[in-house]
Design a protein around this nucleic acid. Structure first.
Length: 291
DNA sequence: ACTTTGACCTGTGCGC
DNA sequence: TGCGCACAGGTCAAAG
């Protein structure tokens, strides 16, 4: 899926066109994606104006004039695009594609096309209308934004201090830090020279102090996310920005998907390994990534 | 309380 | 060419 940088690029692509746009109606091409849509989902959206488009962790948040918020998670393969209906067809949803599940008809002065289409082949994403963002179950337990001021080495140390799970699994846990996924955890751990199998609690020199290793890890997480943002995110297969374009950060992966290739760290002669942790691939250099 | 595993889906690429 | 298998950016519920 889109991780934090990709979701943010989507937000940046949507915000200029959706802010102030009126949702004239919503067409659902199936009952739900990952979760079923509420029975009145389309009806509650119709007639609303989008007042703001934001992001929290990997969630998009569309603030509505009603005060409700449309929460959208892209899962692994979710994407938004603007589309024109086929003028030759009578049916409103003709001309759309197999996995176009939700179609918003907009009244917007400057959107590239009058329809905003949510497409998601694997249907791991979901959309939900929430009345109170503060108490929403998906948002309530999230950890700090990794690019925000509340993400600190001290706070990270607190979260890891009693954890015996590998650091790889802990950084994927959105309650520890919110927005990282498999790619950027692999890349950040390589930059920080940390073996992904290291027990989280072992990264603290002593309980209560983050120490230089976690201080550096925080810096490296921020760096890799910022570099990915500047590159427009990473495109593997499905991820596309709102314009249908690719990101470019995949060309700058140092470990992810590089099994068997040489480590690119200056002076390191290691070969990138792939192991499975918590059912996910971890790529790392066994030579320069030590606990 | 913490950790791991299975489940949810479709598509793609590879070996045979 | 076709088939089966492994794998893919995520996260939740259930089981250990």
């Amino acid at each position: 899926m889109p991780e934090l940088p990709e979701v943010d690029i989507v937000k940046q692509g949507l915000a200029p066109f959706l802010t102030g746009a009126l949702i004239k109606r919503v067409i659902l091409n199936r009952n739900g994606v990952r979760f079923p849509f509420a029975a009145d989902f389309a009806q509650r959206l119709s007639g609303q104006t989008i007042t703001h488009v934001g992001r929290r962790a990997k969630y998009l948040r569309f603030m509505l004039s009603s005060g409700e918020v449309l929460l959208s998670h892209l899962g692994m393969t979710g994407n938004f695009r603007f589309a024109e209906p086929d003028p030759q067809t009578v049916e409103i949803n003709a001309g759309f594609q197999k996995h176009d599940h939700v179609i918003f008809e907009l009244s917007s002065t400057d959107a590239p096309a009058p329809f905003l289409v949510y497409s998601d082949p694997r249907r791991f994403g979901f959309m939900e209308l929430v009345e109170d963002v503060e108490t929403n179950k998906f948002l309530a337990g999230l950890g700090p934004e990794p690019l925000g001021n509340s993400f600190t080495a001290t706070g990270l140390a607190e979260g890891l201090s009693r954890r015996k799970a590998p650091i790889k699994a802990a950084l994927l846990d959105q309650r520890i830090v919110a927005g990282l996924g498999n790619i950027y955890v692999c890349e950040a751990l390589h930059r920080a020279a940390i073996d992904p199998r290291t027990r989280s609690c072992d990264l603290l020199p002593e309980p209560g102090t983050p120490g230089p290793v976690l201080e550096n890890l925080v810096i490296q997480i921020r760096l890799v996310l910022n570099e990915a943002l500047e590159a427009g995110g990473s495109t593997l297969q499905d991820y596309r920005n709102v314009d249908g374009g690719s990101g470019y950060f995949q060309h700058r992966f140092v470990v992810y998907a590089r099994k068997g290739e040489p480590c690119l760290k200056e002076g390191c002669n290691g070969i990138i390994s792939r192991i499975v942790q918590s059912g996910r691939s971890s790529f790392f250099c066994p030579v320069c990534q030590k606990g």
